[in-house]
Simulated scan of single mutants.
Amino acid sequence: MTTTAPTTATASIDRPTVVAPARRTRRRRRRPRVGTNIVAIVFSIVWIFPVYWMVNTAFKPRAEVMNPTPHFVPYQPTVQNFVVAITQSDFLRDLLNSLIVVIGALIISLALALFASAALSRFRFRGRRVIMIVILAVQMLPATALLIPQFLIFNDLGLLDSYFGLILAYVASVLPFSIWTLRGFFVTIPVEVEEAAMMDGASTWRTLRSVLFPLVVPGVISTSVFAFISAWNEYILAYTFMKDQTMYTLPIWLVSFSTPTTGTDYGGQMAASVLFALPVVIFFLVIQRHLVTGMSAGAVKG
């Protein structure tokens, strides 16, 4: 009787000290992070303001665009800048050129990156690490450093002023990034899945086609977004390799609104920028859910 009472009393006294830290932790988690939210809001405003100003300027008449006093909302909204951008330039022709070149480069680069990343992640062969280091080194080089050698090689091969030549140049620029990104997705696939398919009698090609490739579809989607944006916004290669104006792409068309003789049509240029960014935005919105899933699935140490 004398030993039971102190034990019960001690337990009743010690119980609040054990539960209290957990309750304090929950309360801390429930408190709004005011500082983090403010920083996020400020960062979002700084990031979105140039986009807003581009759209705002695109709907302004020329008088408001050239007014030294900034107007954050158009006083007299107009779509004349969009009409000028579409009708008084080669927008449709250059849009077709961009679609042909970018889609061709995207298909070829994804196909090559898919097989290359599968080989670098699932097979063991001599020189595999050297190849990976070389791919990473090529990706780290600036594009302007490779411009002159590429131009000389393509000139000797007769690939200038052609869709195929520009597609190959775009493939060379986006392929290293695509290989490294897709390799991260292949590394996440357990080896047991591949071994189980081979034990059931599947060949190497059947295992790749029916087991591994379907599992890296989120990675293909994520890689396609970044490859598409990189090829769509490319200007230097298109301007250097294409001397025929009928072969120009949209980035070169965008620069045509600023000339030494007539100056810069800021309203038309901003309207053209909106039209130029619209396909990328639509493409991103369509596959946004798959993009987030793919980025989180491939974010592992490989």
Score class of each variant (00 low, 15 high):
M1A: 12
M1K: 06
T2E: 15
T3G: 09
T4F: 10
A9Y: 09
S12C: 14
I13T: 12
P16Y: 05
V18N: 09
V19K: 06
A20N: 12
P21H: 08
A22M: 15
R23Y: 07
T25E: 08
T25D: 09
R27K: 11
R33T: 09
R33S: 08
S44V: 13
S44C: 13
V46P: 05
I48W: 07
P50W: 06
V51D: 07
W53A: 11
T57C: 05
K60D: 04
A63F: 01
A63Q: 11
V65N: 07
M66Q: 10
N67A: 11
P70F: 03
F72I: 13
F72T: 00
V73K: 10
Q76M: 13
T78Q: 04
Q80G: 07
S89A: 08
F91Q: 13
L95V: 08
S98D: 08
L99P: 06
I103P: 01
I103H: 02
A105N: 01
A105Q: 07
I107C: 10
I107F: 14
S109A: 15
L110K: 01
A111R: 03
L112V: 12
L112D: 04
A113N: 00
L114G: 13
A116T: 14
S117N: 09
F125H: 00
G127M: 00
G127E: 00
G127Q: 00
R129G: 12
I131C: 02
M132S: 14
I133K: 02
I135P: 00
Q139E: 09
P142W: 06
P142Q: 14
A145P: 01
A145T: 05
L147F: 05
P149T: 04
F151L: 14
I153T: 12
D156R: 11
L157A: 13
L157Y: 08
Y163E: 03
F164W: 06
F164H: 03
Y170K: 00
S173G: 12
L175M: 10
P176V: 04
I179D: 00
L182Y: 03
R183G: 04
G184T: 04
F185A: 02
P190V: 08
P190N: 05
P190W: 01
E192V: 05
A196L: 12
M198Y: 04
M198K: 14
A202P: 09
A202D: 11
T204H: 09
R206Q: 14
T207W: 06
T207D: 07
P214I: 11
V216E: 03
V217Q: 09
G219F: 01
I221P: 12
T223H: 02
T223Y: 00
A227Q: 11
I229H: 05
A231Y: 00
W232E: 04
E234W: 03
Y235P: 08
T240R: 10
T249L: 09
T249G: 13
P260F: 03
T262M: 13
D265Q: 15
Y266E: 01
G268W: 01
A272L: 13
A272P: 08
V274N: 06
L275P: 05
L278C: 06
V280Y: 03
V281W: 05
V281G: 10
L285C: 13
V286G: 01
I287N: 14
Q288D: 09
T293S: 15
M295L: 15
K301F: 01
K301N: 03
G302N: 03
